[in-house]
């Protein structure tokens, strides 16, 4: 059983626990959990990129593209979550595939910023499109699940389960992929690209594959958030600050483990929620302050807390 390691077991246990928890959770907690899963998935894509040494400040592009694709399909009568999320994921993936030809040539801060530039173009297009509600965005009704049409709280319960299944599959898939030869190549690209090429691998191809993957999961996250909130708007879907939040989550989580991105996303949502609740006038201060504290004192992200715990135990 070479595919089953402790991370897979851990993720599977978390999956089963959460499936049961879905039916007992307080509604607000489930909603935060749902958002954490969706944003965590986007961060997972960024994590994969980060392992090759690349960081994108523009993944709101794919997030927004996935969200708007799903939302626009509801306008012409599609409401099935499977189809909407599939379409949102795929469309973002195709976009990433196309832009990837250009972007894979760039590294470091240039890569980060070119992504941001493209995301701003999408933002501008949405703002200018009055048919799509411009900055107000537009709403989409509750989704159906292969004919099952839940109402009220059941929508969120079903959506949570739906998201959980897919994020579980994707996360385990990413974890296993990382262990393959091509997957291990990412660290090598990060360390020294030219040497990778001398070994006979194309660094650009490695990057392109990862870029498309990150686009796919960002589109997935966007489509899920669109369904969960029932509304798309450019400021929460495609603005550069949204991209910043994804990088925030990635750094919060650290590079250590694929599961960590979801904890990072959860911690992010909780910081924001409580800052809003207890300090409504200075929530940005608290958010920024926590980020600074993590950068300064937890350079490897929250995951390093777990690692420390393990070390002290061993």
């Amino acid at each position: 059983m070479r595919y089953v390691d402790k991370t897979v077991i851990g993720l599977s246990i978390a999956f089963v626990v959460l499936v049961f928890a879905d039916f007992f959770m307080a509604e607000w907690m489930r909603f935060i959990g749902l958002q954490s899963l969706a944003r965590g998935a986007v961060a997972l894509g960024l994590l994969v990129l980060w392992r090759t040494g690349l960081v994108s400040f523009g993944h709101a592009l794919y997030f927004g593209f996935g969200a708007y694709t799903a939302a626009m399909l509801t306008l012409i009568g599609f409401h099935d979550a499977f189809f909407l999320v599939f379409a949102g994921t795929l469309s973002a993936g195709v976009l990433a595939f196309l832009l990837g030809f250009l972007l894979r040539r760039y590294r470091a801060i240039f890569f980060a910023l070119l992504n941001m530039a493209f995301s701003m173009i999408l933002y501008g297009v949405i703002v200018k499109t009055e048919e799509l509600g411009s900055t107000d965005g537009f709403s989409l009704g509750p989704p159906t699940f292969l004919g099952y049409a839940p109402e009220g709280e059941a929508v969120q319960t079903a959506l949570f389960l739906f998201t959980l299944v897919f994020t579980y599959i994707v996360t385990v898939g990413v974890h296993l992929y990382m262990k393959t030869t091509l997957g291990s190549m990412s660290m090598a690209v990060r360390e020294n690209e030219i040497r990778v090429e001398y070994l006979g691998y194309s660094a650009e191809k490695v990057i392109h594959v990862k870029y498309v993957f990150s686009g796919l999961v960002a589109g997935f996250g966007g489509a899920i958030i669109a369904l969960a909130i029932g509304q798309v708007d450019p400021d929460s879907m495609a603005n550069w600050t949204v991209s910043g939040e994804f990088v925030f989550i990635t750094i919060l989580s650290g590079i250590g483990n694929v599961g960590a991105t979801y904890i990072g996303a959860l911690v992010f949502e909780l910081i924001r929620t409580y800052a809003f609740e207890y300090a409504p006038q200075v929530w940005q201060f608290i958010l920024g302050g926590s980020l600074l504290a993590i950068i300064m004192f937890l350079p490897d992200g929250i995951w390093s807390l777990f690692s420390r715990f393990r070390k002290s135990e061993g």
Binding site: K6, I9, G10, N257, F306, R310
Partner: peptide, 10 residues
Amino acid sequence: RSGKATLLLA
């Protein structure tokens, strides 16, 4: 070796 930590997380 991240299994235990993942368990903890769960």
